[in-house]
Amino acid sequence: MLTCKEFLQELNDYLDETGDIELRRRIESHITQCPNCFVILDTTKKTIQVYKGVLAQTLPQDVQARLLKAVERKCSEKKLRAGLPSIQP
């Protein structure tokens, strides 16, 4: 059986579903016998879920507008540099 320390080391692979079947089996067996690790697994899973669900960021329209303007300015500068090499210092 896994120790609690080993359980913690393998927790990420379990949560990310990157661990192999044998590892999943050992973790699932551990949490049926260790209430603390069961709670850690459950609440860590919920931590990730709650972040994924809530932190959708909207981009303020004025920020987006300033960004596009800056890119346009950069594009003109680039074209100017490419087209008029003689004015380069």
Binding site: L8, Q9, L11, N12, L15, I40, T43, T44, K46, T47, I48, V50, Y51
Partner: peptide, 15 residues
């Protein structure tokens, strides 16, 4: 792993 566990702990106070 450490980030997730620390966040879990911080959120436990609320949840």
């Amino acid at each position: 792993l450490r980030a997730r566990l620390q966040l879990r702990e911080k959120l436990t106070r609320f949840f």
